[in-house]
């Protein structure tokens, strides 16, 4: 017998904490990084205490983000293997966005879009870490040839936009999918939510 109050755990407390530390770090990184990227955004450097503090703190927050996000995301790798069903989901994403899920293969713990986000974030994070170390003043940058630093700083900027765009999609999707935000704040989803959005996962855990 199930009732509408019957809830399923989707994220544990430590997963939620890791997600939100990672999210706050990402926002600080995006804003402090934009301050270094475009003159129109230079005023954002004040958020972390001015230009010098912005330059000092950005890479350390980056390392924190790397560690926390990796701790959160790596155990979820198994749930994010992209399958044929995910490709069909992605091909028909317009129908999903139009609130019409008929004929779309059943979704497991994550849908195709979530899995793409997972891999984009994970790979993007590695590019940002590697390129970030190469341009990190005053500790590492002078160990690398200047041409490598020039390529790294461009790769860092372009990858960062990619991730900022991905996170904008992620935030939009999580607000749009009513109940998702609650899942990440309180850790639980309703059976109806699980069955509707992630029927494959629902069959495993429900």
């Amino acid at each position: 017998m199930t009732t509408r109050n019957d809830q399923i755990e989707r994220y544990t407390g430590s997963q939620r904490a890791a997600h939100w530390v990672s999210a706050i770090s990402f926002i600080l990184l995006a804003l402090s990084g934009l301050a270094l990227f475009h003159p129109a955004m230079a005023w954002l450097a004040n958020l972390l205490g001015g230009g010098q503090w912005n330059r000092i703190l950005h890479p350390f927050i980056g390392v924190l983000w790397f560690l926390v996000f990796a701790r959160f995301a790596l155990p979820l790798m198994g749930s994010n293997v992209i399958t044929g069903g995910d490709l069909k989901w992605l091909a028909q994403v317009r129908r999903v966005l139009a609130h019409d899920a008929s004929g779309i293969p059943p979704v497991g713990r994550y849908n195709g879009g979530q899995k793409v986000l997972y891999w984009v974030l994970l790979l993007g994070m590695l590019v940002l870490l590697a390129s970030g170390v190469v341009i990190w003043e005053p500790y590492f940058a002078d160990r690398f040839p200047v041409d490598l630093r020039r390529i790294a700083v461009l790769a860092h900027a372009v990858t960062a936009w990619g991730l900022i765009l991905s996170i904008i999609v992620h935030v939009t999707a999580s607000v749009w999918t009513a109940g998702s935000l609650t899942a990440m704040v309180r850790g639980k989803v309703s059976r109806a939510w699980a069955k509707h959005h992630h029927p494959g996962w629902y069959r495993e855990v429900g």
């Binding site: 509408r4 609130h99 999918t177 309703s190 059976r191 109806a192 939510w193 509707h196 959005h197």
Partner: peptide, 10 residues
Amino acid sequence: PEEVHEESEA
């Protein structure tokens, strides 16, 4: 928003 109808799917 994409909402789930609790009664119909619970």
